[in-house]
Design a protein around this nucleic acid. Sequence first.
DNA 1: CATGTGACGCCTG
DNA 2: CCAGGCGCCACAT
Length: 120
Amino acid sequence: MGLAEMEPVDVKLTDYRMKVYLAVAAIPQGKVSTYGLVARHIGCSSARAVGQALRVNPFAPDVPCHRVVRSDLKLGGFGGRTDASALARKRDLLLSEGVKFVDPDTIHPDSLYDFSQPAG
DNA sequence: CATGTGACGCCTG
DNA sequence: CCAGGCGCCACAT
């Protein structure tokens, strides 16, 4: 095993990242939002940059990063990974919170939270 | 300062 | 439905 693999991931908490974490913390249980909607909510036009910030989440589980999915309502990634086992954990977490799925990999639109309503 | 890399998203063919 | 192409932008190198 290479030494690099055991290095701790040093997370630089920039203003941008904090904005992302704050926004994600507002997503209620049983709902999801999308990378793009989070980006818009914090005044940014790059969903990719939101994904970058969520690759490492130093505030789990207070910041429920598993509640952020792609705009097509497929899962995206989890724990910095996009492989099947990581996505299966993300799906199980969402299922346990009451998020509805239309198929094993796609969330039902009813479960979308778009930040427009204060009380979900 | 230049370049590469994504947990993205939209448009085209 | 499935590729590509490209804009996007924070971060690492």
